[in-house]
């Protein structure tokens, strides 16, 4: 079957053990304000237009069958998204790569074959494939088919998930997954809803069920300055993890690398004024989780 994927990245060094290929699935039910892959949220193809790379050669103006690319009075280009049908013609002819289509329908066979090419690299490094996104479980059947194929080929497979999906869907994927990377954003359900658009009740119940099945899970906590890093946030997180008998958490400190993509999508980046963490701040949070809650902490 087919699914929507926006990137297949080999030699991924930070998405699990060893050398990995990361599959980025498009579409996510959450709308975290800090998301660094805004193009992963929408489940359809999207056109990204990087104005900083535009040479103003106007090739796209002529090429667009919808006339969605317009020249403004000041000679700069304007992309009329209401007219754009994301056909991709402009991206194909753009000489500077300022226009990119994110997302492509690809078959499970194709993705599995692309992930298998690096088998030797996985074998030598203890690596494998990471299914990431977006939220892969938005396309649970597609993901299950890919994971089943990878399992058959003997490849190590990680599911990198927010945990937000009907249990039935997650449950069906789990047999083919060797390891889960689970992002927990915050423990307070109403705050979670405010930050991500959804409550975390489902996430937490899925997590508990998954752990009960004896699945190996690595927890990761995206830390966003002034958002989910207050003393009480950390305290709740520490208590929660300890209660579940979890010994390790990976911290994902906020970074603003995705800002350019928001602009390219004509989306507003609400966190544009947010500063990245200072080393000491991360160290302080990390130390607290270690000493007060007995967790082992790594910074990803």
């Amino acid at each position: 079957m087919d699914g929507m994927v926006f990137d297949v990245q080999n030699f991924s060094l930070n998405d699990g053990p060893g050398i990995r290929t990361t599959i980025f699935f498009k579409g996510c039910p959450l709308r975290c304000s800090w998301c660094s892959n805004p193009e992963s949220q929408n489940a359809q193809e999207e056109l990204l237009y990087y104005k900083n790379l535009c040479l103003s050669c106007y090739s796209c103006v002529e090429a667009c069958p919808q006339g969605a690319n317009k020249i403004k009075k000041d000679k700069t280009l304007f992309l009329d998204r209401s007219a754009c049908r994301v056909c991709g013609i402009c991206a194909k002819i753009c000489p500077s790569g300022a226009r990119v289509i994110s997302g492509k329908r690809r078959s499970a066979e194709e993705i599995a074959a692309a992930s298998t090419k690096d088998s030797l690299f996985y074998r030598n490094s203890g690596g494998g494939v990471t299914l990431s996104g977006g939220e892969p479980l938005m396309q649970a059947e597609f993901v299950r088919e890919i994971a089943a194929k990878l399992k058959k080929k003997g490849l190590h497979c990680i599911l990198d998930t927010s945990g937000y999906a009907p249990w039935k869907k997650l449950h069906e994927v789990l047999p083919y997954i060797d390891l889960l990377y689970w992002d927990i954003k915050c423990i307070d359900p109403s705050k979670h809803k405010r930050l991500t658009g959804v409550s975390n009740n489902l996430i937490i119940s899925n997590l508990k069920k998954t752990l009960r099945l004896g699945k190996k899970v690595v927890f990761r906590l995206p830390l966003i300055p002034g958002t989910n890093d207050s003393d009480s946030d950390i305290e709740q997180m520490g208590i929660f993890l300890r209660r579940l008998g979890i010994g390790h958490v990976g911290l994902l400190p906020y970074h603003n690398l995705g800002a350019g993509k928001y602009k390219a999508l004509d989306k507003v980046y609400f966190l544009s004024s947010k500063k990245n963490y200072k080393r000491e701040e991360i160290a302080r949070i990390s130390k607290r989780l270690e000493t007060e809650y007995g967790l082992s902490v790594s910074i990803v």
Binding site: Q9, D15, T22, S36, L257, G258
Partner: peptide, 17 residues
């Protein structure tokens, strides 16, 4: 640019970044 769970090309990052 390679950061956990993030995919982008350097030239497509914002100038400030």
């Amino acid at each position: 640019v390679r950061v956990a769970g993030f995919s982008a090309y350097f030239v497509r990052l914002d100038k400030g970044i």
